[in-house]
């Protein structure tokens, strides 16, 4: 028998009786006894994607992490549309959103540098527009998200119930003021929709061109989207108008029963204020909830099927 540490190792004990271990050791055991710096390759540990709390709320990643192929005609059109609506929105935001009442206005005023508040305000609008432009053109969702946040942040301000605008020459007429607000809101929503559609259609286009999905009659599908983009904001604007002009519509119905009470309602500060809008929202959405409760969409569908 060779001495320990010298010459060939004696392995005869491996063949004696039942002490022979006849299989290779478990890989798991081997892994468990290895030191941390033993050079286990990274891919030996499976990658587990743990969603963060935002992903958990929305059921998946909020931002699309995918490379797109160069934009096709549809995507280019959408990009143009998004940039157009962004420019209008930027201008409307500048017109309708005064710096007074904002947090930065209050802080700069306290510090005695009130003019800086205005600059911060303008800078935020500029950030919203520029990052939106960049996001749409580069199809970068992070920049788009920054744009949404900036454009919404500038509207958050302490305000009285009375509508105030950023530019003093804008009309004082309540109807025009409310219509301008609706126009602003519609453009904000349209911008958000078209810019997200840029990403959506880029994904679709990439999937088509990489053969993941086959689209039959692409034109009819894009035409449907274009039509929806036309009438959905219009419908939203109508519903918003009904809601915002509740101080006109409620007295209209009340007048049938009691003209004096209707006059009082028209003059009511509460009904013309933001709480009137809240009341209008409740009334309009009660009607919509009732439509869903009786499953009206399906009934309309069934009716249309029968007619067809």
């Amino acid at each position: 028998m060779a001495e320990q540490g010298k010459g060939p190792v004696d392995t005869s004990h491996l063949y004696d009786g039942k002490v022979v271990r006849s299989s290779a050791p478990s890989r798991k055991k081997a892994a468990g006894t290895m030191k941390a710096d033993s050079g286990i390759p990274d891919d030996a540990v499976p990658e587990v994607a743990i969603p963060n709390w935002i992903d958990a709320i929305f059921g998946g990643p909020v931002l699309v992490n995918r490379e797109f192929v160069s934009p096709n005609k549809m995507v280019l059109t959408l990009q143009m549309g998004a940039i157009g609506s962004l420019l209008v929105l930027g201008f409307l935001t500048f017109m309708l959103t005064p710096v007074s009442g904002t947090a930065w206005f209050a802080l700069t005023n306290i510090a005695g540098i009130g003019f800086l508040g205005l600059w911060v305000h303008l800078l935020m609008i500029l950030i919203g527009v520029v990052s939106g432009f960049w996001g749409v053109w580069q199809r970068d969702q992070r920049a788009m998200l920054l744009s949404y946040v900036a454009l919404i942040l500038v509207t958050i301000r302490f305000a009285g119930s009375k509508v105030e605008f950023g530019l003093s020459f804008l009309p004082e007429n309540e109807v025009i003021q409310k219509l301008l607000l609706i126009l602003y809101a519609v453009f904000l929503v349209v911008y958000m929709e078209i810019s997200s559609a840029v990403i959506r259609f880029s994904m679709l286009d990439t999937s088509i061109r990489t053969g993941e999905v086959y689209v039959m009659n692409v034109k009819s599908i894009t035409d449907r989207y274009n039509r929806a983009l036309g009438y959905t904001p219009a419908v939203a604007a109508v519903v918003a108008t009904l809601t915002l002009f509740i101080n006109f519509f409620v007295p209209l119905f009340v007048r049938i029963l009691d003209p004096i009470a209707a006059n009082r309602l028209e003059e009511s500060v509460e009904l013309t204020s933001v709480y009137g809008v809240a009341l209008g929202t409740i009334l309009v959405f009660i009607v919509i909830a009732a439509m869903f409760a009786i499953n009206l969409p399906l009934r309309i569908q069934q009716y249309l099927e029968r007619q067809a």
Partner: peptide, 25 residues
């Protein structure tokens, strides 16, 4: 905040969603 601008944007967004939901149903 008694801010009509915010409420208006919210109402338009909600209406937008509601109409899309009706269409999908």
């Amino acid at each position: 905040l008694r801010n009509q601008q915010l409420v208006t944007v919210a109402v338009v967004l909600l209406s937008f969603l509601t109409w899309a939901a009706l269409r999908t149903a």
